[in-house]
Structures are given as C-alpha cells and as structure tokens.
C-alpha cells in the first residue's frame, strides 16, 4: 500500500464503493421480482375475473354452465370448515403453549414435545391429508365430511398457533408472575388472569395467520376426497324434513373455495377459467386481508406495549 499514490487509493475506494451501489440495485431488482409477480398475478385475475364478481356469483351453486356458476357451496363450506378448525386449534394450541411455557418441567418429555412441534411445522401439508384419510375418514369413520376437513386443517395450523402463543407468553416479564404469586394466586390463577389476557394480541396474530393459511390450503382437503361438485348446502340445525340434528352439518359432504377454484382451473373451457379467476380473487382478498390484519395487530402491539 505504501507505494500507492493518493489518487490510486481514491480510485480503489471508488471501485469498491461502486459495488455497494451495484448490489443495492440488484437487491431492489430482486425485491421487484416478487412485487411484480404479485402485481401481475393480481392484475391478471382482476382483468379475467372481475366481471364475474356479482351478487349472483356469491349466491349461486356451481353449474355446468360457466355463466351461471357461483361459489355459494364453496364459501359456505370454507366458513364451516374454518369454524371447526378454529374451535379445535385455538384451545388446544393455546393450552399446549401455556403448558410448554409455564408448566413444563425441564425433562425429556418436554424435549420430545418441543422437537415434535418444530418438526410438524415442516411436514408437507399433503402428508396431513394422508393422515386424515387413514385416521379421520376411515378409522374414526367421519367420512369425507366437514368435520374431517376441519380437524385436518386444525392439526396443520397447530404449530403456528403454538409458536405464536409461546412467543407472546415469553415476552411477558417475570415480575408479573412474581407479583401474582406474592398475592397468593395459584399458578392457574396467574396464567388465566394475567399471562393469557396480556398475550392475547400475540395469540390473535398467530391464530389469524394460521387460519389464513388454512383457508387457502387445498392439498390436504383434496386428499381426504372432498367432492368438487356440490350443489347442496350442509343441513342447517333443526331445519328440513326430517329435522336435522344440531351437529348434522359436521358430517355433510362439502366443497371449499380453493377446491372450487382448482376444479374450474382444470377445465379446458376459458369461461370456467374466468370463474376460477373470480374465485381466486375472492380467495386472495380474503387471505391477504387476514394477513394484513395480523400484521397490523403485531405492529400496534410493538408500538403500544412497553413493560
């Protein structure tokens, strides 16, 4: 270096700094690939499908004639399946996370549970479908029903709920617990009155992200053999003749939004592709608004709470 002139050193520095600029540009371009793909996807679906979005589209059953087809059975099915998923995954996931964070002793049992939660998050979703096919559909005899689908998706999002809840609980400082114990509260009183209420925003974020994932999940539901052409709604409780029982809908055949979209996509006629675009649009808006809500809650959480 000693024999370099100032001008040479300056040139070297400029050369290296140029790489900074080049890389920053490459980075922005890489980001743009993602952004542009999304924009193209969304714009394409709007152009092809937006004109199909009308009141009729939401209240019509699927039909062999593309222009009459709608997504009534699909969105009702999706809603009911999500209901089952939420009712199972939230309590079990939150309770599991509470156990792991607040109760679990440090031993091999706990280690096994923790390793399992991590591994389950990486299992391909279609494997859950195979589990459900063997277990729920045939062993338990639930059939290809809303109950089977809801439980399958619940197992699928369980790791998401558990991880989010654990993170939320972990961020609560120990003094809160100590304060409660000092006043004579039991462990459960501490958990139920303090830990859980304070971690609700974090839990909510995880639950919403999990449900958003579940609502767009197609593979496991196809695997349990959900029909793709359904022109009836599940029986509403206490209606019909003979009157349906309060839980008959759980065992009804069904279809969901992504399966309806898959069905329309795999047909050759362009008219059905427009239906698929419209259904996809509804699906994307639904999952994205759920994700956006979760991101918003997390943002608020980060801004508001300072222990």
């Amino acid at each position: 270096m000693a024999d370099m002139t100032v001008a040479e050193i300056r040139a070297l520095i400029t050369k290296h700094k140029r790489w900074d600029l080049i890389f920053a540009t490459v980075g922005v371009l890489a980001l743009m690939v993602g952004v542009l793909t999304f924009v193209a996807l969304f714009a394409g679906m709007v152009m092809d499908g937006a004109h199909r979005l009308s009141w009729d589209f939401f209240v019509n059953f699927p039909s062999r004639r593309a222009e009459n087809a709608g997504i009534l059975s699909a969105w009702v099915g999706s809603t009911l399946v999500m209901l089952v998923t939420a009712v199972t995954a939230i309590p079990v996931g939150v309770a599991g996370a509470v156990y792991l964070e607040e109760y679990a002793p440090k031993n091999w049992m706990t280690d096994i549970i923790e390793i399992n939660v991590t591994n389950l998050a990486g299992v391909p979703s279609i494997i859950y479908g195979l589990l459900a096919l063997g277990l729920f559909v045939y062993k338990f005899g639930f059939g290809q029903s809303i109950l089977s689908a809801g439980l399958t998706l619940a197992l699928l999002i369980l790791p998401v709920v558990i991880v989010a809840t654990r993170e939320a609980i972990r961020s609560i400082p120990g003094v809160i617990r100590e304060g409660a114990y000092a006043l004579g509260a039991t462990k459960w009183q501490t958990t139920a009155d303090h830990i859980l209420p304070y971690s609700i925003p974090g839990i909510l974020t995880g639950v919403i992200i999990g449900l958003a994932r579940a609502i767009g999940e197609t593979a496991p539901i196809i695997t349990i053999g959900a029909l793709t052409f359904i022109a009836v709604l599940p029986p509403a409780p206490f209606t019909g003749d003979p009157a349906a029982g309060p839980f008959d809908w759980l065992f009804a055949p069904f279809t969901v939004m992504p399966i309806q979209m898959f069905n329309w996509t795999s047909r050759p006629e362009a008219a059905f592709h427009q239906n698929a675009a419209a259904a996809g649009l509804v699906l994307v808006v639904m999952t994205l608004s759920m994700n956006a809500l979760a991101i918003y809650i997390r943002y608020r959480l980060r801004k508001n709470i300072k222990w």
Binding site: T37, R213, E217, T218, A219, F262, M290
Partner: peptide
C-alpha cells in the same frame, strides 16, 4: 403477504 397467497392461486397463475 406474498407467502400468504394460497398455492392454488399460484397454480392458476
């Protein structure tokens, strides 16, 4: 959000 788009929509795309 990009990761949250349902895969069937990507398939269609």
């Amino acid at each position: 959000l990009l990761g949250g788009v349902p895969t069937i929509v990507y398939g269609y795309f």
